[in-house]
Amino acid sequence: MTQVPKCTHSQKARGIIIDRLARRYAGLRNAMAFVVYAFTLLPTLIVIPISFGGAGEMSFPPSNWTLELYEQLFSSSAWVSSILQSTKVSCLATLLAILIAVPAAYGLGRFDFPGKRLVLFLVMSPMVVPVVVTSLGLYLYFSRLHLVGTTIGLVLSHVAYVTPFVVITVMAGVNKLDPALELAASIMGAKRLAVLLKVVLPQLRPSIIAGALFAFLMSFDEVVIAWFITSPETTTLPVKMYTSVQWEISPIIAAVSALLTMLSIVFCCLSIFLLPGTAEPSR
């Protein structure tokens, strides 16, 4: 009897001490976290000021602030067409990946069927295989199909590349759904399609948006597969950047990098702030 309160007392005391320690060193903890983040982020962020430097230089801090690099970038048809190509490929790949991944995630997350593990493994396998190996395989396969160098070939490759990630994201959402809602809807007379459209998809919206943003960024950044599959006519932005770094280091690359970085940041912010469902506690 007397042990019990004692025990909770000492536990409480220990808790208080830990609390106090935590508070005392909270500043230190935050400072360290800040340093680590700064160390990893700065090289990325540093391209942003550099990109506002003059046309001939690539230095930090820039001696004079201009938009010359951006002007050069957008007046070069090679760069602009690669940006457009990347945008096109990423949009199409995202769209297709969502169309494949959402039903797949729902089926895999909600139902049990024979061979489910095998299907899951197959869907996830592109994540396991090294990208270079995937690329080589796709290259050999697509050259038979005469898809190498085509936009559609690259889109299909990127779909294979990003779909597993979208499936994982959406499946996490499916696992949070209450199956009673779908049952309730069907008892109320809703057909399968209505259940899917009016009950399941609206609730999955946050996960689908998150998956789509993720897929778009992955495809937009992807360089290895694109390197294998694209031709000079279908060059994407990362491939163009890579080649331009190989032959000449043009300061334009700073402007492109800055744009890419900002794109990523914007997408991350979007996925954090624009998704109503993710911030709420799950019910």
Binding site: I187, R205, R283
Partner: peptide, 20 residues
């Protein structure tokens, strides 16, 4: 199937559609 049985059901945890 359930949707053709013409029943109504009330669940312990309400099963309301949260987005509506």
């Amino acid at each position: 199937p359930p949707r053709e049985r013409g029943l109504g059901m009330v669940f312990q945890n309400y099963a309301l559609l949260p987005h509506l």
